[in-house]
Amino acid sequence: MVELKVKIGDLEFKNPVMTASGTFGYGEEFEDFIDVGKLGGFVVKGTTGEPREGNPYPRMAETASGMLNTVGLQNKGVEYFTEKIYPGIRQYDTNIIVNVSGSTYKEYAEVAEKINELDDIPAIELNISCPNVNKGGMVFGTDPSIAAEVTSLIRKVYKKTLIVKLSPNVTDITEIAKAVEGAGADAVSLINTLLGMAIDAETGKPVLSTVTGGLSGPAIKPVALRMVWQTSKAVKIPVIGIGGIMNTTDAVEFFLAGATAIQAGTANFIDPQISIRIIKGLEEFMIRHKVFSIHDIIGNLKI
């Protein structure tokens, strides 16, 4: 059989396919459709120090080949996660990664510290790129020095694998990637959503309650591919590719661009089995191309 194992930091993944934060709930939502344990990993939705109600409805607008969302990090907080959610999901035979969010350095650190104590959470994804919150989120991910500062702060309190999720809403994403690499990140994941907006011409009003939101889906794939390619050349740490991956072919494109692993996001909404289909599809692709290891595809773009 083909070899799909990859490593991010010290952490081994049985395959390079994960599901993206905010698109997969806590995994339980997909239990009727897939064996969650077959995934390389999954990223739990954005978890903050205090519970958050998120943004008002409407929170979603469908756009050409994609969707805008402004959920605004609705979650019940880190304590609720550790006490109520974690005991029910910790037995999944996969890498459960918690997406850590916050409005202040202190909040990020508090969440990371609490997650650090959970034996069956081997990694966090530091979210410095949420476009839908007033304070924090993307603010931390658009300035290289602030991104480095929050990363090194978390590096001090979080002892396991630290992934930093980057925003595409910057002039040069490689600057941010290099900054967080220097501050001790084990990997970067990119891209988070692209800031966008939708307007209803009939009513003259914005479609989303917060006017702007984050664009995801196939519409952003070319941008994501470009950024993954640039970043993978700029840093030594692994890059996790995210952005409009809807099928195996899309995933292969991200590996070729230099991604060590990928996350399927919006695709989960359309096909709740897509993550597993991509894993099977990768095996078939590799057999068809007579490639033994996924490492023979990663970064193997022929220019």
């Binding site: 905010g22 939502e29 997909f30 409805y57 929170r59 979603m60 969707m67 919006t266 989960n268 709740p272």
Partner: peptide, 17 residues
């Protein structure tokens, strides 16, 4: 009735206050 994406409680788009 709400604008929905996933329909299975993952995306949190179709909320009612």
């Amino acid at each position: 009735e709400r604008i929905m994406a996933c329909g299975i409680g993952a995306c949190l788009c179709c909320v009612i206050d």
